[in-house]
Structures are given as C-alpha cells and as structure tokens.
Design a protein around this nucleic acid. Sequence first.
DNA 1: TTATAGATTGCCT
DNA 2: GGCAATCTATAAT
Length: 213
Amino acid sequence: MLARPQFRPLPRSFFDRDPRRVARDLLGTILVGRDARSLLAGRIVETEAYLGLNDPAAHAAAGRTARNLVLWGPPGRAYVYFIYGNHYCLNVSCLPEGKAGCVLIRALEPVAGLERMARNRGLDLSALRSPAQLRLLTSGPGRLCEAFAITRPRDNDTDVTDRDSHLLVAPNVSDDLPRPRILATPRIGITKAAAEKLRYIIKDNPFVSGPRS
DNA sequence: TTATAGATTGCCT
DNA sequence: GGCAATCTATAAT
C-alpha cells in the first residue's frame, strides 16, 4: 500500500455547534484535498455562517430540497452547490442531524500544492511568483473550489471529519498561538439579512476575498 | 412549461 | 465601476 500523508481531522463534535461558533473557529484551520497524484492544502482565512430555516439568506430557508439535503444531515459534511452557471461553493454542515446550519468557506491562504492549484485555475505557473496573482488562486468561494477541483455531485456529502476522505479539515497546531485576530463583518453577495455580521475574517490577511482597499 | 434570481468571477470601458 | 457568462433551483403560469 502506498504511503501517503495522514491527517487527524477535526472531530465531528467541532461541527455539532452553532454555525457562528464553527465559522469563527474554522479560521486558521487547514482544508486538505487530495487525489492519487497530489496533495492540496490551504489555511482558512474567511468564512460565513448560515443559520438554517430562520436565516432568509440561507439555502435551508426554503426547507428541505433535493439540492440542500446534506444540510439536514449529520454535522461535518461538505455541502457543495453550483451558482451563477459558473461556480461551485463549498460549505460544511453544522448542528445535529435534523438542523440545517452551515459554514461557507470563502477564502484560503495556499499552503501546499500551489502548482496544481494554478493549473486547476487555468493560471500560468509564473503567477506563483507574484503576490497579486497568488491571491487569484483561492481568494473567493468559487476560486478555491476551482483550485481544489471541488464539484457537485462528486464532492457533495463528503465527510470532512474522516481521515480517509479526499476532502477534510484539519486543525492547525502552529496557528493556536497567537490566536488569529478575528473580525466579524456583514456577509458578501447576499440581499436578504445582509446587515448581520456573520462573515468572519482573519484581520489583515492578504488572502481574504474582496477588494484590497 | 416558462421565467427569474442567484452565498461569483473576469473582462470590459 | 459596470456587466455578461452560464445553468440550476425554485417560483410562477
């Protein structure tokens, strides 16, 4: 059997909580993607919480549908959806089975497998030398999915707490001290419930999505 | 069966 | 800063 890196993912209990807590605590953790050939890793620097039935901006607000079924399942599963005819977005389900909260992963700081990410994004490898171009790899929910080749239906319902999954979330030991400075802001790109501060970012991290200001 | 908005991105002026 | 691309889920007819 081929040796490959092992990761101890976050436990299921981590996701069995209020999406706001999960969204905050996911900052600094590592999204790991892998296939037979490559290992991809990125540090999560931007998330958004979606609260379920009572959150007008959440897909779950429509109730249980074929698309959002994963949201009502057990915590710690990938919810992948297709948007604007162009892009996939990655969420992780929260709360116990029967409740539909989730966290949208909005931006990563690339850690490993940057060449593969660039290829997946259709970028020239010279992009890896320019900070501005580096941002284009995984700075945005659609971009990070393309970089990690995350699609639906294949990756939908993946258990990101299973060490054997091709997509998982692992703690980042080196990030625990000092605790990243966290900022809460309004969510991006929504029209309903747009005032609530449910977007969480690592302050001053250059890989957070949106204009650099 | 048809219409429309959407948890985005990249290219245009 | 504006807007087209491109398709799916859901609402409206």
